[in-house]
Design a protein around this nucleic acid. Structure first.
Lengths: 119, 119
DNA sequence: CTAAATGCAAACTATTTGCAACGAT
DNA sequence: ATCGTTGCAAATAGTTTGCATTTAG
């Protein structure tokens, strides 16, 4: 595991946010002023392909990176605000329904956050 | 609803595929040779914002468009093959767990398709 | 000494935007 | 005449790639 990969992984694991490549780049640059975007992207891809981080594709916004530990996401349909939620695990349930072994699943729940509901 | 919006909506509703903007553009061009990509994108956005179609963001591939009727997706983690599945509806369950009203949810189940498992 | 990781710039893909022309009320 | 829709070209955002240089084992 390379120096930057290490730091990036740590940033993702420490953070409560779901950061974009750009945000991670800016964050990393604070302590590593020489780093460039491409390196961040390359490391993110490596981490993703090695199953060390999750990648979240959200409509109309750049990909976000997240820790691997299983949890689900609550997304405001209007402002796009994204937060973590812990719902009961569906793996067994899904496997029963599908009669297939599954690797993982990704559950996004859309709602209107308080702010957007009030407008 | 504009002429093209209409045709695009029909294409999406008729098709069993989950087409990208590019594929829809090519398909539409068969009968409407003058249409350009930007128009397709603009119409897709309008349809999406009016809640007439779904938009699927998949890691490492362009967005795909889908009919609105509720169903879930099975995605091969390796080759990216995407198919529809009908799982039991989780809305009530999720609302109970979250104690929040939800608008919808998006469930992607990752697995290895037969082809990829055999390699 | 060698291989892997990095910096840099350029390329590429997906998508959006500004604007002029067109078409249907 | 007016307003929304289209075609076109250029712009932009996000991401990837090729290659020369640096770094670590």
């Amino acid at each position: 595991m390379s120096r930057y990969a290490d730091l990036i992984l740590e940033l993702i694991n420490q953070s409560k946010e779901h950061m974009t490549a750009e945000q991670l780049f800016l964050e990393l640059k604070k302590t590593e002023p020489k780093v460039v975007q491409a390196t961040v992207y390359n490391n993110l891809n490596a981490l993703y392909q090695n199953g060390l981080i999750r990648k979240l594709s959200i409509e109309n916004s750049p990909d976000r990176y997240d820790k691997i530990r299983k949890h689900d996401h609550l997304v405001c349909r209007k402002c796009g605000e994204l937060s973590d939620i812990n719902l009961e695990d569906l793996t067994k349930n899904l496997e029963n329904q599908l009669k297939e072994e599954i690797l993982s699943y990704d559950l996004k729940v859309f709602y209107l956050c308080k702010k957007c509901r009030e407008e």
